[in-house]
Simulated assay, not measured.
Amino acid sequence: MKNYKLIATLLLGLAVAPFAAAQQFEKQAYDKACGSCHNTGIGGAPKLGDPNDWRPLVAAGMARLYKSALEGTPKGMPAKGGVDGRNFTNSEIQAVVDYMVDKVNVALGATAGAPAGAAAGAAAQPLPPVQYNFNRLLKPMDKRNLPPSQDGIHDPANDGTLMLQPPLQGMADLVRSRFGNNTDWVASFLGKKVTPRWERDNPFAEGMVMDLDILRVPKAAVQDVLFPHKQHTEWLDCSNCHPAIFVPQKGANIISMPLILLGQKCGVCHGTVAFPVSECAKCHSQKKAAAAAPQKAAGKP
């Protein structure tokens, strides 16, 4: 009898080990690719383990949840959670979604003992594709700078839309670039090809241009960020950013790529009306200072 119990215990251990390993991987993958937003609910992300946040999402079907995780959402969640998740396979990302759904224990109509994700996936109905339009400057090349009646922003049925100048016609004489909407606005401004007004009703009004650079040193192993006030204040009044977006006080602003990708901080403009965050070197332009070599104690070799 003891031998049978020993064999049963060994078989049970062999069956449980892969499941435990899978759970450990899902937890690690979640922490790497998803936790920065879903742990706190930043930017409206459904919080891990919160049934109220997840119930309507799960009710819409696992197929939609999988699609959102793999392709991103219009609200700003990047595909596969962003840079940290892009090396995971589609199956691994789907496993992480199952892990998150299991944490909320939402009633899915699943049969007893069946995995929640599998049951919901089997019952899911075909859904229209989720359009990833968070960063409209990253549309395919043939979808950029469309006439107002075709850009998805203006009402094509409105007669006034047809009176608007097509972007390609209006930007034909501006300095070209390889990013965003293919126009280098700063170079165009410096070349006097565009002359923004400070006041709508007063063409002679002059603004205050601040020539002040701010260096931000990220903790990650990326180049430092140089923020030039001059290029921004040549276009914008200080009140456009301060204090609603950035508190004008040292150490008072938390800036991270997840926040920017969710349309906060720098992402309020970059990715919508300014060059997209895909151009890393435009901001991360300064080499990190070399770390000082440790000094040897006096009297020791």
Rank of each mutant, 00 (worst) to 15 (best):
N3W: 11
K5Q: 04
L6Y: 14
L14H: 12
V16S: 10
F19H: 03
A20V: 10
Q23T: 01
D31T: 05
K32A: 11
A33F: 08
H38E: 05
N39D: 14
T40Y: 11
G43P: 04
G49V: 00
G49L: 05
D53F: 04
W54T: 03
R55V: 00
L57K: 15
Y66T: 00
L70R: 09
G72Y: 02
T73S: 09
T73W: 03
P74Y: 10
G76Q: 05
M77Q: 08
V83D: 06
N87D: 03
I93K: 00
I93C: 01
A95N: 09
Y99C: 00
M100I: 01
V104C: 05
A114V: 06
A116H: 06
A119C: 11
A120L: 04
P126Q: 03
P126G: 07
L127G: 14
P129N: 09
V130C: 10
N135R: 04
N135D: 14
L137F: 13
D142E: 12
D142A: 11
P147Y: 07
P148Y: 12
G152L: 05
D159T: 12
G160S: 12
Q169R: 10
A172L: 00
A172D: 03
A172M: 01
R178I: 00
D184C: 02
W185R: 05
K193L: 06
D201Y: 10
P203K: 07
P203C: 00
F204P: 01
E206F: 04
M208V: 06
V209I: 06
M210E: 05
D213L: 01
I214Y: 04
P218A: 03
K219G: 13
V222S: 07
V225N: 07
K230W: 06
W235E: 02
D237T: 08
C241P: 11
P243N: 11
V247Y: 13
K250M: 13
A252I: 08
N253I: 03
I254K: 15
I255M: 15
M257K: 11
P258V: 06
L259K: 15
I260K: 08
L262A: 14
C266M: 12
C269A: 13
H270V: 08
T272Q: 15
A274N: 14
V277K: 09
S278D: 14
E279L: 07
S285K: 14
K287T: 14
K288S: 07
K288V: 02
A289F: 13
A289C: 06
A289T: 14
A290G: 10
A290C: 07
A291V: 08
P294K: 07
Q295M: 09
A297M: 11
G299L: 04
K300A: 12
K300D: 04
